[in-house]
Design a protein around this nucleic acid. Sequence first.
DNA 1: ATCCAATGTTACCGGTCGGTAACATTTTCG
DNA 2: CGAAAATGTTACCGACCGGTAACATTGGAT
Lengths: 214, 214
Amino acid sequence: MQTDSQKKGRKLTARRTARLPVRDRILVAAGDLFHKHGIRGVGVEAIAEAADTNKMTLYRYFDSKDDLIAEWIRGMLAHKEEEWKDLNAAHAGDPQGLLQDWSRRTAAKLRAMEERGSALGNALAELPDPEHPARRAIQEFKVREHKRVVRLCKDAGFQNPNLAANLFSMLLEGAHSCVQCVGMRQFGEHLVHLVDLMVENAQQQRKAPYPTAL
Amino acid sequence: MQTDSQKKGRKLTARRTARLPVRDRILVAAGDLFHKHGIRGVGVEAIAEAADTNKMTLYRYFDSKDDLIAEWIRGMLAHKEEEWKDLNAAHAGDPQGLLQDWSRRTAAKLRAMEERGSALGNALAELPDPEHPARRAIQEFKVREHKRVVRLCKDAGFQNPNLAANLFSMLLEGAHSCVQCVGMRQFGEHLVHLVDLMVENAQQQRKAPYPTAL
DNA sequence: ATCCAATGTTACCGGTCGGTAACATTTTCG
DNA sequence: CGAAAATGTTACCGACCGGTAACATTGGAT
């Protein structure tokens, strides 16, 4: 009847993805559902429906569900890589400020993530196959990221850069795990507080090598 | 032919569970498979087979797969509660030593856990339903555990016990996440090192309130 | 030996899922 | 317009899974 393409009630996600290319709509919908119900808890049919399309079209853009999973993960990783570029651009020559900003951005995301935790961590839990491309991508990314943090800790003047970098990683990763449990909403603030303390310590160490424990 | 009950080749797990009651064999086998392949990646038939029994017997001991999952989780949590009792008994009146021992025991487990991470964390990722009894049990346990750590940090003389406790939790949880990625085998050692530093700092703070960052 | 409880065997059900084929419809664009 | 490309619709397949029923077998205690 009506040629209006906005007929019928659209899904909640559809409003956000109103005029995106189909492939992107699928990826967004898949990401939402994967994160909400778990990768294995979502069927391709539900994804297609949430993306306001159908299963056939989905399979015209992705070889398989595993391919869709991998593309979703790759998208998130690419986004995180760009955030690192932003951070590097915004804090050139100031590794301490960069680390502090990193903790603040992470804390901001933590608050909006409470119930379901980290999508990357959950993906590792749900994809046990070491050969799964999504799993490989995540692990390679984490290794790259950790190397970056070690480099930053060296530049920031930490006495023991490897130890400091591991502390950073554990703090950031641990915060993702901890927010999942009820009543622990203060982890974000404490995370940035602790990183600030670490950075202050690193600065003090340069002039006065007190045994300040980091 | 032969009445020998040890005929045929037994599964690998079967040797460890040779003469355990059926129910326990099922729980052990389920735990192994759940942790290896993910909860949703394992069928009840495979569990029964690995437990050297069959599906019907399994369903005579457990109402459903979800019940089996919950019982498995409850078993792990009970085991962890007992470990806390051991710790309290071994370090009565010495909260600092208790925390150090805790980090050491955790680090020891980390090494034998590399590939698949924490079973509890993975379970949270695989059971998105907030009403799932296993999920509720895990979250309640983590809350209890965190309260215990806060209490310990108070007794250990930390200036800011809440902050210290959150740091402890993030370190321990974060270590579980970090070991999953290739080439990060030093997290165990660094974990105990960092906890030692924290405890030393708490001791120093009592006599000399230097701004030693914790 | 006998009886009873525990365990094993087989077959089955309904449902879901990933994936494909064939065909109809709409959109885009020269 | 008209043709080609993109998208939608329906139906289907085979595989697997959680769960159950009915019946056979074993094994231990008395």
